[in-house]
Nucleic acid binder design. Structure first.
Lengths: 147, 147
DNA sequence: TTGCAACCGGTACCCGGGTACAGGCTTACC
DNA sequence: GGTAAGCCTGTACCCGGGTACCGGTTGCAA
C-alpha cells in the first residue's frame, strides 16, 4: 500500500472528499502523488494536517490565514520557526477576547430588554427612555464584525 | 415636503441607498409611496426602523428573523403583542451565551498554546502530549458556528 | 431649456467556505 | 473481460448580506 485514496483521507479526517480538492486549490494541501491513472495518493500525515486545519478554523482562523501559517511553518522550517505562529496566535487571542467582550455587551442588552418587557420593536427603537435592546446601540458602535 | 428621498433616509440611518431597495425586496421595509415619476418617498419613521434593524442585527438576529419580528409586531399589533418578541429574545440570549462559552474555551486553548510555546503546526496537531491549540479540538466538537 | 444629480429596475458580482453535478476515465474484484 | 464503485476535471450553485454596474427616467435649479 503506497498511500491513501481521497475518500479514505476524507473519512479519516471527517471531511467531504470534495473538500480535499478544494483545499488543494486553496493552497492548504500540497498536490499529492498520483497513480498512473491520475488518482491522488495521499501520505498518511495529510489526515493530521486536515485535523489541524479544522482545529485552527475552530479557533477563528480563516482558510487564508491557515494557508499562510502552514506556509510559514514549511518554509522557515525548524530553525527560527515559531515567530510567525506565536505572533499570530497572540493576535488571534486578542481578537477572540474582543469578540467575547462584544458578545457580553450584547447579552447584557438582551437581558435588559427582557427585564424591561418591551413590546413593540419599532416604538422601542424610537423612544429614548426605554432601555431597549434595539435602540441601545443606535448611535455609533457599528465597528463590530460579529463573525 | 412630503417625505424623504432614498438617499436622505440612507444617510440618516447610515446605510447604503441600495440597501433600502434590498430590504424592501427582503420584506424588511414596506414599499413606500412614490412621486408621480416613480421615485420613492419615505416617511420619517423609516429611519427608526432602519436603526432598529441594524441594532437587531448587531444583537445577532438574521435579516429573516428581523423581518419576522417586524411582521409579528405589525400584525398582532398592540394587544397580545409581546409574546413573539420576548420568546425570541430569550432564545437569542441563550444563543449568544452559548457563543460566549464557546469562545471562552477557544481563548483558553489559544492561551495554552502560547504557554506551551509550540512550534510547528503539523507536528503539534499530531503529538498527543502537547497541549496544543490545533489538536485540542480534534475529536468531535464540530458543533459550533462561530459566526 | 438645458444640464446634471439622483433615482429607477434588472442583473451581476463580492466575500468565505464549501457542495453538487455532469460526463468521462480508472481501479478493483469476480 | 465485465461491471460497479470510485475517482478525475470543470463548472455551477448554495448560504447571508449586501454592493456595483447598466442604460434609461425624473427632479430640480440656474
Amino acid at each position: 500500500m503506497s498511500g491513501l485514496r481521497s475518500s479514505q483521507v476524507a473519512a479519516a479526517a471527517g471531511v467531504n472528499p470534495q473538500t480535499l480538492r478544494y483545499y488543494e486549490r486553496r493552497g492548504l494541501l500540497a498536490a499529492p502523488r498520483r497513480t498512473l491513472g491520475g488518482h491522488r495518493l495521499y501520505p498518511a500525515e495529510t489526515v493530521a494536517v486536515l485535523r489541524m486545519i479544522k482545529g485552527a478554523q475552530r479557533l477563528g482562523f480563516t482558510l487564508d490565514e491557515v494557508a499562510d501559517l502552514l506556509d510559514t511553518a514549511r518554509h522557515q522550517g525548524r530553525r527560527r520557526a515559531d515567530a510567525g505562529l506565536r505572533t499570530r496566535t497572540r493576535a488571534k487571542l486578542a481578537d477572540v477576547e474582543a469578540r467575547i467582550a462584544d458578545l457580553r455587551e450584547i447579552a447584557g442588552t438582551l437581558r435588559a430588554a427582557l427585564d424591561a418587557g418591551c413590546d413593540d420593536l419599532v416604538t422601542c427603537a424610537d423612544s429614548p427612555g426605554c432601555p431597549i435592546p434595539f435602540a441601545g446601540l443606535r448611535e455609533g458602535t457599528p465597528h463590530v464584525d460579529p463573525r
